[in-house]
Structure formats: structure tokens, C-alpha cells
Amino acid sequence: MTVGATLRVGVIGVGDFGERHLRAYARQPGVTIVAVADKNAEHARAVAAHWGVQRWFADGAALIESCRPDGVSVVTPGFDHLEPTLAALDSGCAVLLEKPVAMSSGEVAIIEAAVEGSAAFVMPAHILRFTAPYIALHARVRAGAVGRLLGISSSRDRGRGHARLYADVHLALMTAIHDIDLAIWLSGSRALRVSAHERGREGDGPARLVWGQVEAVDGSVWSLRGSWLLPDSPPLADRLEIYGTEGAAVLALAPTVTILGSPIESVDHEVTPEAHSGAIDAEISHFLACIRKRAGSDIVTLAEAAHGIHIAEALIASARAGGDPVDVGD
């Protein structure tokens, strides 16, 4: 992977969040967005025109083959992550891969094998590791502010619309994957076994409540709860509690500022704010720095993301078995 003074990047998948990646790249110095790709060719063309990007494609692999960028964001739905990621790695192009990085442990293994044979790397886009309140909490917990870690409890509740948007993705792989990753990051440990329950299915639809418990190698226990049960209005605050031998730490963070006017508005103030840089800018800045130094991230690794997928799979298996404990694979 030869890197020039100006980094050349592309974005594959330019729905709402893909455009947020575009906005963040556009704010970075020394970066040229060479192309975008989306399965909806007309949408790809329109997004390229809006952002002044010269080239657009209906296929991510075609973008990589034709443009040979230094790095790409893969912001497609999870089921479409594998092909563009493998194409990028084969061409020596670094990948910022949105969560979930894959839909199964089998797909993760394929990506890991491709990284081993590539000059490039994959950086999982676990954005909460770049969000200021979580960074502050991580620093204090890892410095021993609550003593030896005993337990983690997290809750993340979203609207019922998620069950429609992600009808083919289990909640554990979509919403709860954030909390799985936070537990891995905060504990610095790995999961041994899990037990979980799911509720709220309607017909063939997805479970809308998942509640799991994880036993970790370091002896800590993690309670993870996620739901898609709320009305489609501003969500409850995400809550994270850390318990240790010397005390506890609590973070309650609403992802938006709620404006109770007419109409009611939810203004993002942490992840992808319109008016100033946020966590996604920090994440993409770090990705670009990794490309320049030709090395993967030391903040979030593919191995950690892969372990998160193993945990999510175990939670799903346990929930579907009525809560029976399931060992977490490697």
C-alpha cells in the first residue's frame, strides 16, 4: 500500500450514515473523496453530485478496482459487508468497516484470513470508543478508579421502527453490539459463556427485547439489555454502570438533545453533529492516521470486533434455547 501526500478515499454505501462518513471526510485536511458507491445507482449519482465527487458506482468492488483508493468506508448493510471488504483488502486498500463488521463468526473468519494475506488492514467502526463521555469513563475505569472490576450493566433502548428497518438482523447484532463492544473495551477481558432471553416477537418478526448475562475470563459479569420497544420518538438515555471493589461509575447519556417545540426535534450532539465535529470525525481522523502510518488501529481491533460477533452469536443461541448457557467461541 503506497500512500501519497493526499489520501484518496471512497465511501461504499451512501445511505444516511454513509453520507455522515462523507461529511466527516470532507472536513479532513489532505483528503480527496475519489468516488462513492451504492447499490441504488441513481442515489449514488445524486450523492456524488451533491458532494462534488467526480465518480460514482453501483458496485463497491468496481469502485475499488477502478479508483484504487488508499482507504474506503464500508457503510452498507451488514449482509453486504463481505464482498467490498475482501475486494479492498485484495487491492491493498484499508477498510473502515461499520458495525456489525460481519453477520456471523464464519464471515469474520474470512475477513481475518484476508487481512493476514493483505498489506492493508480493517478498522472496525465502533464509534462509541471515539465518543468523549465513554473515553473519559474508560480512562478512569482502566486507571482503577472503581478498583478491580466486578460487573458491568448496560441498557440501550430504541424505537419500534428499528424492528421494521432491521427485520432481518437480530437485535444482539445491531443495537446490543455497541454494549458488547463497550464491555470488551472497558474490561479488557473476554467472554467465557452467556445466557440470554428474548421477548416481544410478533409473528415472524424480530425479537424486540434481548436480555443477556455474560461471564468473563477476569471473573466479572456483564448484564446487557437492548430493546426496540419505544415509540418512535426521542429515546431513553443509554445507561452504563460499572461496579468494582472500590465503588461504581455510572454514565447516563442521551444520544440527542430533545427540543420540545413544534415539531419535536432530536438533535445529535455526540456522534455526527451537523454544526461541529463529533465522534465520527474523531474516528475517521484516526482511520486516516492509521493509513498514513500503514498500521492498524491501537484503539479498536478486528480481533475485538470478531470476539464481539462471537458473543452476539452466543446470546442469540442462548435466547433461542430458552436461556440455556452457551460457551463463547473463539
Rank of each mutant, 00 (worst) to 15 (best):
G18D: 12
A132N: 15
E116I: 09
S155G: 08
H310W: 11
R239P: 01
H21Q: 15
S104T: 08
F121Y: 08
A48V: 10
P273W: 12
R148T: 15
P29Y: 00
H178T: 06
G4I: 00
L150Y: 00
R164A: 13
R129Q: 08
D181H: 09
A275N: 15
T32S: 08
A102H: 07
V328Y: 02
A48Q: 08
R23Q: 15
D70K: 05
L82P: 01
A114C: 14
L149A: 05
L315K: 06
G4Y: 00
H307T: 10
G71A: 13
I12F: 05
G188L: 12
E98R: 07
I111D: 01
G4N: 03
I309G: 05
S104K: 01
T32V: 11
K293A: 15
E283G: 09
I12H: 05
S187W: 02
I299C: 07
M1N: 09
L86Q: 10
G322H: 04
T76V: 05
L192K: 13
A102P: 03
I135V: 14
A114H: 05
L229A: 10
I311A: 05
W51F: 15
W51R: 07
L82Q: 11
L224N: 10
S187M: 09
A114K: 12
I12Y: 06
G52C: 09
G30F: 02
A303D: 15
P100I: 03
R201N: 03
I33A: 03
E241I: 14
L251K: 12
F287A: 04
R164T: 13
G18C: 10
A216C: 11
R27Y: 00
A136F: 00
S262Q: 15
A275K: 12
L149K: 06
G219H: 10
L173A: 04
L240K: 06
T6W: 02
V221N: 09
E313Y: 04
L288S: 06
E107C: 07
D218Q: 09
A295Y: 00
G261M: 04
T32W: 05
V9S: 02
A216R: 08
L315T: 06
G10V: 05
R140V: 01
V328W: 03
A167D: 14
V221G: 06
L240P: 03
A120D: 14
V74H: 02
F79G: 02
G71C: 03
A248E: 15
L253C: 12
I264R: 07
V95S: 02
A279K: 04
L89G: 01
I64M: 07
L240W: 09
Q54A: 15
A58T: 10
A176G: 01
V47P: 00
V101R: 12
I135K: 10
A314M: 06
V328D: 08
R160P: 01
V194S: 09
L182Q: 11
L86E: 11
I152F: 00
P77I: 03
I291E: 02
I33Q: 04
V146T: 14
A61K: 04
H269Y: 08
A317N: 04
I291Y: 01
I33W: 03
I316M: 07
G322D: 14
R164P: 01
R148E: 15
C93W: 00
L165H: 08
A88Q: 07
P263E: 07
S91R: 11
H126C: 09
R199M: 13
A58V: 10
Q28D: 05
V72L: 08
E313G: 10
M123Q: 14
